[in-house]
């Protein structure tokens, strides 16, 4: 019985993240439009877009290989599994011990690896430029993320997200310098990883500065739909990650009942709403930067993370 319940909550988590991801993207778009004094598309528009793309036939270039067609499924599956392992409404879900934070980030790396390969598959210059820049950004964002993981793991004494969230919710954590540095670095990495302004513009097309959109330019129909859903999922994953580590309030503990879960879901949705406001406000108030400024941005994130980790190594008090 316990086992069935454990599987059920893990299943709920998987369905929940997949269902909520387009909603979050839609909310960010709506808020952004309102901030720019536009009416903007309805909040539910991403669902309609995804459904429309699903129903259309997929068009692939004549020389597209099997890798091009398999990549959307692989990318979506890897991102979905990663997102299902980040606590949203409850910690200690049945499979939370399957992969720790390092493995979750590496799973996203696997997804990116295949997406970058698919960008090169057709043999166009746009696909190549996207893949090449995506890997540059990743090569800086991943070490920065690893340093953030170091800070969190050294504070909480664990790389398991459930344990980190549990520790952060307890009173043992207190106010720490290294945590503040990690938070800033994590937000910077999240912006870069999700191709948001100022690193990349998710709304742009036909610009030489685009990165993620250039990489997936050849995709259409159900393939494009899955890739867009993966991008939304990844954004939701990072927001949930920041929420569960830095604002672990309302998270249902491991052995709690349905009422705690319901409050957990409500708290999570509230956090998402706040995050959507913050992201929209940030994106409307800043301009996109040149591609070769990106290393400076991410280098700063890396240095912040490294500084935090060094502080933790030097003294447990920071």
């Amino acid at each position: 019985m316990d086992l069935i319940l454990a599987f059920a909550t893990q299943g709920v988590q998987m369905l929940l993240v997949a269902a909520a991801a387009p909603l979050f993207t839609g909310a960010v778009r709506k808020i952004k439009s309102r901030l720019m004094r536009r009416v903007g598309p309805p909040v539910l528009q991403p669902y309609r877009d995804l459904a429309r793309l699903m129903r259309k036939e997929a068009v692939a270039a004549a020389n597209a290989s099997w890798l091009f067609r398999a990549t959307p499924y692989l990318v979506f599956a890897a991102t979905w599994v990663a997102a299902a392992l980040v606590p949203t409404f409850a910690t200690g879900l049945a499979f939370s011990w399957t992969a720790d934070l390092i493995a979750i980030i590496a799973l996203l790396g696997s997804a990116r690896f295949f997406l970058a390969l698919a960008g090169i598959d057709i043999g166009t210059s746009f696909g190549g430029i996207g893949s090449s820049r995506e890997m540059l950004i990743a090569s800086l964002a991943e070490p920065a993320m690893m340093m953030i993981i170091f800070v969190l793991a050294l504070i909480a004494g664990s790389t398991q997200l459930s344990n980190i969230a549990g520790f952060m919710a307890s009173s043992a954590v207190g106010l720490r310098v290294s945590l503040g540095l990690a938070l800033i670095a994590l937000i910077m990495v999240a912006i870069a990883e999700n191709a948001r302004i100022p690193i990349d513009n998710p709304a742009t097309h036909l610009e030489l500065t685009m990165v993620h959109e250039a990489m997936v330019l050849e995709y259409s129909g159900r393939h494009l739909s899955l890739i867009e859903l993966s991008a939304s999922l990844k954004l939701l994953l990072y927001v949930s990650l920041i929420a569960c580590v830095f604002t672990p309030w309302g998270l249902a503990p491991a052995d709690s009942g349905p009422i705690a879960w319901l409050t957990g879901i409500a708290a999570w949705l509230l956090k998402l709403l706040v995050a959507a406001f913050a992201l929209a406000l940030f994106e409307t108030s800043i301009a996109k930067m040149r591609v070769f400024r990106v290393p400076e941005f991410l280098g700063a994130a890396l240095m912040l993370g490294l500084l935090g980790a060094l502080l933790r190594f030097v003294s447990a008090g920071f």
């Binding site: 129903r55 997929a58 068009v59 692939a60």
Partner: peptide
Amino acid sequence: AVHWLGSRAIRRSAIWDC
């Protein structure tokens, strides 16, 4: 799920490249 609920048709065409 995608093949069952959505479309399973695929059409080969020339390279798009914007």
